[in-house]
Design a protein around this nucleic acid. Structure first.
Length: 493
RNA sequence: CGGGGCGUGGCGCAGUCCGGUAGCGCAACGGCUUUGGGAGCCGUGGGUCGCAGGUUCGAAUCCUGUCGCCCCGACCA
C-alpha cells in the first residue's frame, strides 16, 4: 500500500495521493480527464442533491441543452469569444473511415464527412441557451426564467490537475433572464449567497465573498462575484462564481421583451456555477497525511462499524450486535457499513476507512459487548469516546455535529491565522517570498495594469474585493496611488 | 509551446554510468500460527524492460527516432 507523501515535502504529490488512496478518481485515457470512482462520485451526488434542493426552494428549475455548440454562436459576444476561443475542442467530422497502413487497420475521419460548420464542445452554455431564450421570451410575462443545468463541459487547458482543472468537468450552470437590471443583480447576489452557505455550512469551508476585479471578470459579464477559500498550503481557490451578465448576451442573441410599460428592451441575464473543482477544494481544506477527511454533511458514509473478534462464537455475537446498531443508525445516517471481512485485521480496516475519510468509526469487540458500549472514534482529531448502546443514535449524531463544527472552526482559524494586513510593498513581497504566503489584505489603486504588474512580479493576484472590507482610504500597496479600501490578495490555484 | 524528470510483473521501485541467463518490496494464491491500530513464517504463480529501428556473438543497459506520463512556467472554474 502506497504511503501518502507528507505535505511538507510536496504538496501536489500529497494531494494526488489523497485522491488515489481515498479511491476518488483515476487518470483516464483521455488527456487531462479523470475517471471519477464511486467514492468520488458519491460526494458529487451529495453536492448535487444539496445544491439542487436549495435552487428549487428559490424557484429554479432544471433543463438540458446540447453538448455541441455551432461555432458561429461563440463568436456573437465579443469578450466571450476572446475568453474561450483558446481552449475549445472542435468537432469537424461526423464519420470515420477504415484504412490499412503498414498492414494495420486504423480509422481516420472520412474526408467526405467534413462538417460545413464545425461544432464546439461547450466550454459553458451561455450561447446555446441564449439562442433558445430568444424564442422563449416575448413579454415581461415570460420573465423571469430561472433555469439550471447539470452537465459536463470541456475546456482544453494547457495544464490540468485532478478535480481542480480537468479538461472535462462536471458542474451546474444557472442561466436566468430578468426584466430589470436590479432583479438580475439581486439574483446574482442571491446565488452567490447560496454558494457561500453551501461552502461554509455544508462543506465546513470558510470563504471570502466579494467582487472580482475587471481583469478577472468572466468573459461577457458586467460584474463577476466569487467566493474564495484558503487551502492548507495557504493558496487561494475560487470555489464558485456568480455573474451579472447585464444585457450583453441579450444584445448578442437579440433577446428582447415588451415590458409592462415603455419600449421593447433587451432582457437582463445572470449565470452562476459550481463544479467538481469543489471536491478538490474539499480535499485540500480538510484532509491530512492519513488520507481524506470529509465533513459529515457531505460524506458518503457518516459512520462505519468495525467488529472485532477472536473466535467464531465472538464473531457471531459481535457481528449480530453490529448489524443491529447499523439498523438503528440507518434512519438518520443512511447506510452504515459493517466491516465484517474476515481476511483483514482490525488495524487494517481502521486505516482503510480513515483513508476514505469516513467521519466516525464505531469499534465493537467482546469487551464492548460485555459493557454494552461501543467505542466511537472521530476521523479528524482521533478523539475516542465510549457510547452506551442505548444512546448510540444520539451519541453518534452529537459527535457528527461536533466534527462538522470542529472542521469549520479549524479551517476558519487557519484562514484567520494566515490572513495579514499588509501596508507596504516590502511586507507584501516578504509575505510571499519568506513567510509562507496566505491572504494579504492590502490597498489597491484599482488599475488593471498595476494589478497585472503585481501578478507578473509575484504570481499573486487580487482574489476579490470582499463585501466586508476595511474601507478606510489608503495608498496602493504597489504603486502608491490612492485606494478606497482593502482587497484580498493571494496566490491562487 | 519552453525547462526538468520518468516509462522494468497488479502497485512502488533497483538494475542503465561500465552490455553477459531480469531482481527487490508490497499485493495475489496455498499452508500453519494469528486477530482491540496497517500480522508472522514457509511455499507458489506472474514481466517480449513504453514502441520502432540500429550497433553487437550478445541490449533493460549503447545510438537514432517515436509515443506516453508526471512536475515547473505561460492559460484557467
Amino acid at each position: 500500500m502506497a504511503e501518502i507523501t507528507k505535505r511538507s515535502e510536496d504538496y501536489s504529490r500529497w494531494y494526488l495521493d489523497v485522491i488515489r488512496e481515498a479511491e476518488l478518481a483515476d487518470n483516464s485515457p483521455v488527456r487531462g480527464c479523470m475517471v471519477i470512482r464511486p467514492n468520488g462520485y458519491a460526494i458529487w451526488e451529495n453536492i448535487q442533491r444539496t445544491l439542487d434542493d436549495r435552487f428549487k426552494e428559490l424557484g429554479h428549475v432544471n433543463a438540458y441543452f446540447p453538448l455541441l455548440i455551432p461555432k458561429s454562436f461563440l463568436a456573437k459576444e465579443a469578450e466571450h469569444v476572446e475568453g474561450f476561443a483558446k481552449e475549445c475542442a472542435i468537432v469537424t467530422h461526423h464519420r470515420l473511415k477504415q484504412v490499412t497502413r503498414d498492414g494495420k487497420v486504423d480509422v481516420v475521419p472520412d474526408p467526405e464527412s467534413k462538417l460545413e460548420e464545425e461544432y464546439i464542445i461547450r466550454p459553458t452554455s451561455e450561447t446555446v441557451i441564449w439562442d433558445m431564450y430568444r424564442k422563449w421570451i416575448q413579454s415581461y410575462r415570460d420573465l423571469p426564467i430561472l433555469i439550471n443545468q447539470w452537465a459536463n463541459v470541456m475546456r482544453w487547458e494547457m495544464r490540468t490537475r485532478m478535480f481542480l482543472r480537468t479538461t472535462e468537468f462536471l458542474w451546474q450552470e444557472g442561466h436566468t433572464a430578468h426584466a430589470t437590471a436590479a432583479e438580475g443583480r439581486a439574483e446574482t447576489l442571491q446565488m452567490l449567497e447560496v454558494y457561500r452557505w453551501f461552502a461554509e455550512d455544508i462543506l465546513a469551508m470558510p470563504v471570502i465573498a466579494g467582487t472580482k476585479t475587471a481583469n478577472e471578470r468572466f468573459a461577457g459579464a458586467v460584474e463577476t462575484f466569487s467566493i474564495e477559500a484558503m487551502m492548507q498550503d495557504n493558496k487561494a481557490l475560487q470555489a464558485a462564481t456568480s455573474h451579472d451578465l447585464g444585457q450583453n448576451f441579450a444584445r448578442a442573441f437579440d433577446v428582447k421583451f415588451q415590458p409592462a410599460e415603455g419600449p421593447v428592451d433587451y432582457v437582463w441575464a445572470t449565470s452562476w456555477g459550481m463544479s467538481t473543482r469543489i471536491i478538490g477544494s474539499l480535499i485540500m481544506t480538510h484532509s491530512d497525511d492519513d488520507g481524506l477527511v470529509l465533513p459529515p454533511r457531505i460524506a458518503r458514509h457518516k459512520a462505519v462499524i468495525v467488529p472485532i473478534w477472536k473466535t467464531d462464537a465472538e464473531k457471531a455475537a459481535v457481528c449480530d450486535k453490529a448489524r443491529e446498531l447499523a439498523a438503528l443508525l440507518r434512519p438518520t445516517l443512511g447506510p452504515v457499513p459493517v466491516d465484517d471481512r474476515d481476511n483483514l485485521r482490525p488495524g487494517w480496516k481502521y486505516s482503510e476507512w480513515e483513508r476514505k475519510g469516513v467521519p466516525v468509526r464505531l469499534e465493537l469487540g467482546p469487551r464492548d459487548l460485555a459493557q454494552e458500549t461501543a467505542m466511537l472514534k472521530a476521523r479528524h482529531d482521533r478523539a475516542k469516546t465510549s457510547v452506551p448502546f442505548g444512546d448510540i443514535v444520539q451519541g453518534v449524531q452529537a459527535e457528527l455535529d461536533r466534527i462538522q463544527q470542529d472542521l469549520y472552526d479549524r479551517a476558519k482559524q487557519r484562514l484567520l491565522d494566515n490572513t495579514h494586513v499588509i501596508d507596504s510593498w516590502e511586507q507584501f513581497t516578504d509575505l510571499y517570498e519568506n513567510r509562507g504566503g496566505g491572504f494579504a489584505m492590502a490597498h489597491h489603486c484599482g488599475d488593471g495594469a498595476c494589478e497585472e504588474t503585481i501578478q507578473d512580479k509575484t504570481k499573486v493576484t487580487i482574489r476579490n474585493i470582499p463585501f466586508e472590507r476595511d474601507e478606510t482610504p489608503g495608498r496602493c500597496v504597489h504603486c502608491g496611488q490612492p485606494s478606497i479600501g482593502r482587497v484580498v490578495f493571494a496566490q491562487g490555484y
